[in-house]
Amino acid sequence: MILGVALGGPAPVVVAVGDGAPARPVARAAARTAARACVAVDLAAVRTAPVAAIRVGGPCPEALRPVVGSGVATIVRGGHSVTGRRLAPLDTEAVRRFAATCGLADFAVTATGSPMLAEHELAVAAIVASEVPGARITLSYEFGYPGLREREADTIRNAALGPEAGRIADEVARELPGVPVYFARSERGLVSAHYFRRYPLACDLGATASLARGRTALGWGASDADGSGVPDAVAAAYGAALGRPEARVERIVQARGRAELDRVLQHARDEALTRVVSAGAAPGSARIAETTVNPLSYLPDGLYRVRVLAEGDTA
């Protein structure tokens, strides 16, 4: 038996998924023997943690500083160009001072040029980890967007969602001890509870995506809602249960010639396969579902934006 679980209402809605339509209610004793549980949750309204944001790059106007709400932010010297050329040495002492005095445990690190070369983000993460034991650190290169502000905003939000994602994952684990738990992604697919804790932004709109998928699979339209929210929750739970583990890798790469491009593409594919196993796919089932390569306009020749989607079967 596979469970679909929809969170966000007055109480969780749990459905059992077999060969046909979802069935509910599900007895707790039966639920705890399920093969896996697939959880649909939207994170838009959850409580967020204050974040310590570190941008590695040059000075900027006040209006363009990192936006952190109740958190704190700093800009330190360093970073690379979009082609990987170092713009300045990393100011490690500034990073160390900020980490030691900010008083926070959730960090978001964004360096200019990191989708091409993540060296300075990784160095900042090492310093933060040494100064703040147990710090939760999100690095922007893992999101891959070339635009600094967009990448930084997602990095900060991922860091801010981390503690609440951990609480949600813990709560589900307590209710379903021993049952492998997956969370629905915002687009499609699933990720493991471990991956959800690390990259909650991937599941920011998990219930919304699962609802659309569940309605389609069940042949329901929006008019099926009766005002109680229960039909939508059932559809979302069902939609989550239909997913499989997926992971995406997005990078900016530089390649001069087809042979070099093939090498960097293989590296991106290998990374995507590793990531989808981390997202809960059985290692032998991991496979590349899609690879997209687009030249970057208005930039030096040989720069490409690479997106790789990997998928697999639940472990």
Rank of each mutant, 00 (worst) to 15 (best):
G113C: 09
G229V: 10
V124C: 05
F143I: 09
P146H: 06
A49T: 13
A11T: 15
R269N: 12
V68N: 02
Y199C: 05
T74R: 09
R28F: 09
M116D: 05
S186Y: 02
R85S: 08
A233Y: 09
F107G: 04
V26A: 09
E171D: 12
V95M: 04
V95L: 03
V306Y: 06
A37E: 01
A272V: 07
G206C: 07
A236H: 08
R244L: 14
G84V: 04
E175V: 03
A207G: 01
V68R: 02
G9S: 14
E260N: 14
A184G: 04
C38S: 11
S223K: 12
L122W: 05
A111V: 04
L273V: 15
I75P: 00
T274P: 01
S223I: 13
A52H: 01
E311H: 09
L205E: 02
A27F: 07
G162F: 01
E175W: 10
V76A: 04
R197G: 01
R157N: 04
L201C: 00
N158I: 01
A111C: 08
V181I: 13
G214K: 12
A160I: 06
T48E: 08
A259P: 06
G78P: 00
Y199S: 08
D91R: 10
L242T: 14
P10T: 13
A255Q: 05
V14L: 11
R307L: 15
C38N: 12
R55L: 08
F107V: 05
V132D: 05
I168W: 01
R174M: 06
I2W: 11
A16Q: 14
T48F: 00
A173H: 03
E150P: 02
S228K: 03
V14T: 11
V17I: 12
S285E: 09
A222D: 09
L43K: 02
A233I: 10
G227S: 07
A310C: 11
V276Y: 10
